[in-house]
Nucleic acid binder design. Structure first.
Length: 114
RNA sequence: UGAGUAGGACAAAUGGUCACGGCUGCAGAAACGAAAGGCUGCAGGUGAGGAAAGUCCGGGCUUCAUAGGGCAGGAUGCCGGAUAACGUCCGGUAGAGGUGACUCUAAGGCAAGUGCAACAGAAAUAAACCGCCGGAUUUUUCCGGUAAGGGUGGAAAGGCAGUGUAAAGGACUACCGCUUUUCUGGUAACAGAAAGGGCAGAUGUAAACCCCAUUCGAAGCAAGACCGAACAGAAAGCGAUACGGCUGCCCGUCGUGCUUUCGGGUAGGUUGCUAAAAUGGAUUGGUAACAAUUCAUUUAGAUAGAUGACCAUUCUGUAUAAAAAUACAGACAGAACCCGGCUUAUGUUCCUGCUCACAAA
RNA sequence: CGAGGUGUGGCUCAGUUUGGUAGAGCGCUACGUUCGGGACGUAGAAGUCGCGUGUUCGAAUCACGUCACCUCGA
């Protein structure tokens, strides 16, 4: 799974994409013309120190990796961690992502996709 | 047992499933490349710290500058040693704190110059307010001497005792202090002793300017080196031909065009990049910091940034509890060129030496 | 990786250069004025000067260390 790297990519999604949010995370979504999903993760310095931020990034990355086969393909996704996401467990982060994905209507049954 | 003091160690452990980044090996092939390679898959092995942090010092390395010297500016500042170097470390001296183990000290020079010292006080670096003494005048005031006493202040011109004097005063004497010279011990800081000197040159302040001694070129791996799409540019060639300008037409010329070469170099890529002042053990030298010799080991290299998630068992702690068991918790914190230090954060963790108090033998 | 700045009543800022008294405006409290409120007048309260150690007789000010925040350059 590829990731968004350049600031330009992020700015395009912020300007043209749609967003939903819940208690822990914010999710931006924009269609790209590719056949796969690209993901960008942003954690502000206000959330915590380097260890805390890095751990949140890993948790988001891991749950996206495991959930990717349930997602519709062809989107640029940006996930922003809010300060409340600090010190949260893997299950809480994963359920937050699933909730946001449902709001965006990108959940697809993998069997149906084939 | 309690309180303290100095030093050291560790940074929960094991297994399974699914992922990620380097490295090594093997295999694959439709597409990339002249090739090396890259790509895909599989296997093996490997992948955060004691502070990786703050960026406060020092060095390696790299580029630039530099004949040599000085000024300016910065840093350091008892002595000796260690070191690649340091503002670090070790050992000592002196001073300060503590009953003690022990700890702390920007610890050169106001006996070179300049500056500053509010308020109080008569007076703050220059001195007579009160007082004391003498003289004049005689109800009182003036002149002179005087720092023993008073009060102010952080500080009032060495301290204290005596001699002396009109009253006083290092004016003189003893002891102590300060300071100079010499001798002895020590590499030295310094310590001890003797002799001399003055104490109207002698208050404090240099984390006030400054003086003295030592020392420092500047910038940083986003340094630097190599390759290099795009693109600005230069040169040569291709024309009787496409367009536009000078011009209505022709010639000519300029620009746009195509090809080749040159050179600069952006995006990007490669390198720098991790085997080193390395780590561990032993021996020798040294009080020690450390050094030498020898043996063994190979130990992250990402590039928007890998080192993760879940499950099970065990360990430690807390709560409930007779126990079993259950629940919760397991700190501070994340490499980014590399080392040596300093500083800060951190656990009811573990170990050792020493001190004091109390009790018992 | 490198450079610089800020921290003072509830808020916004002086004072730091050249060390001795912490001050201004807004806000707050009380009283007066008004039928009542505002405005106005008078009086008053409110400060670990980010924190620690030191230098000094004396520190918001000087030195060192440290914490937090902000800005800039590559």
């Amino acid at each position: 799974m590829e990731s968004l790297k350049k600031n330009r990519d992020f700015q395009i999604v912020y300007k043209k994409g749609k967003s939903y949010a819940n208690r822990y995370l914010v999710m931006y979504l924009l269609e790209n013309k590719l056949n796969k999903n690209r993901i960008g993760i942003s954690v502000s310095k206000k959330v915590g120190n380097s260890v805390v931020r890095h751990r949140i990034k890993r948790l988001i990355k891991e749950s996206c990796r495991l959930k990717d086969r349930n997602f519709a393909q062809g989107y640029d996704i940006i996930i922003i961690a809010r300060t409340t996401a600090k010190e949260k467990s893997y299950q809480q982060i994963e359920s937050a992502i699933t909730h946001l994905a449902k709001l965006h209507h990108i959940i697809v049954d993998p069997a149906e996709k084939k």
